[in-house]
Computed example of a mutant assay.
Amino acid sequence: MQLLSTILIALVALEHLYILWLEMFAWTTRGRQTFKSLPAELFEPTKALAANQGLYNGFLAAGLIWSLLITDPQWHTNVATFFLGCVIVAGVYGALTAQRSIFFVQALPALIALLFVLITHSV
């Protein structure tokens, strides 16, 4: 169960590292292919805004990776719970305000990972 929890946290962290890369470094190239609902002329003027969002995703990934490096079980659980909770809140907010699919892409994987973290800690 612990291994599965670790893998799920790592996957959520990797997803947010990918989002960091996409929003900070590939917004005007790969971003256009990923976010097809946005008009093409918006990518260049919103480059700085996307980079800012990417930076926040990087902080989420860093926190999740940090949680994987903590050897104390209680602190690992606390830090993982906090950062997975942040991802869930951001994903729900994004789904409500921007695009519904954000819930399934970001919030749901973090929610599943959080459930496994809590189940592993309670065992």
Rank of each mutant, 00 (worst) to 15 (best):
80 A>M: 04
51 A>W: 03
4 L>Y: 04
88 I>F: 04
77 T>E: 06
52 N>H: 14
77 T>R: 03
49 L>D: 14
105 V>D: 07
62 A>C: 12
110 A>T: 03
49 L>H: 12
31 G>D: 10
29 T>F: 06
77 T>L: 02
58 G>A: 12
34 T>D: 12
46 T>P: 09
56 Y>E: 06
29 T>D: 11
54 G>Q: 04
102 I>S: 11
47 K>I: 02
90 A>E: 02
23 E>P: 07
40 A>L: 11
116 F>D: 02
43 F>Q: 00
28 T>M: 06
122 S>P: 02
78 N>F: 15
115 L>K: 08
40 A>H: 13
115 L>I: 15
54 G>K: 02
39 P>W: 05
52 N>E: 14
95 A>R: 12
120 T>Y: 01
115 L>P: 08
16 H>P: 06
34 T>W: 12
24 M>W: 13
65 I>C: 04
10 A>S: 08
67 S>A: 15
76 H>R: 10
54 G>M: 06
69 L>T: 15
42 L>N: 00
95 A>F: 12
31 G>W: 08
101 S>T: 12
15 E>A: 07
113 A>G: 02
28 T>F: 03
26 A>S: 14
32 R>D: 00
109 P>S: 08
9 I>R: 00
30 R>S: 10
61 A>P: 02
92 V>F: 11
101 S>N: 11
32 R>C: 01
118 L>V: 02
113 A>L: 00
66 W>M: 12
109 P>N: 07
13 A>Q: 05
9 I>H: 00
54 G>Y: 05
8 L>V: 06
109 P>C: 09
65 I>A: 05
86 C>N: 07
21 W>C: 09
103 F>S: 12
4 L>C: 03
39 P>I: 01
71 T>L: 14
5 S>E: 08
61 A>M: 02
13 A>N: 04
18 Y>T: 05
41 E>Q: 03
93 Y>S: 10
41 E>C: 00
76 H>F: 01
22 L>A: 03
122 S>D: 12
111 L>Y: 01
62 A>I: 13
35 F>D: 02
84 L>C: 02
98 A>C: 13
52 N>F: 11
71 T>A: 13
51 A>P: 05
105 V>P: 04
59 F>A: 14
25 F>S: 07
14 L>C: 09
32 R>I: 01
75 W>T: 10
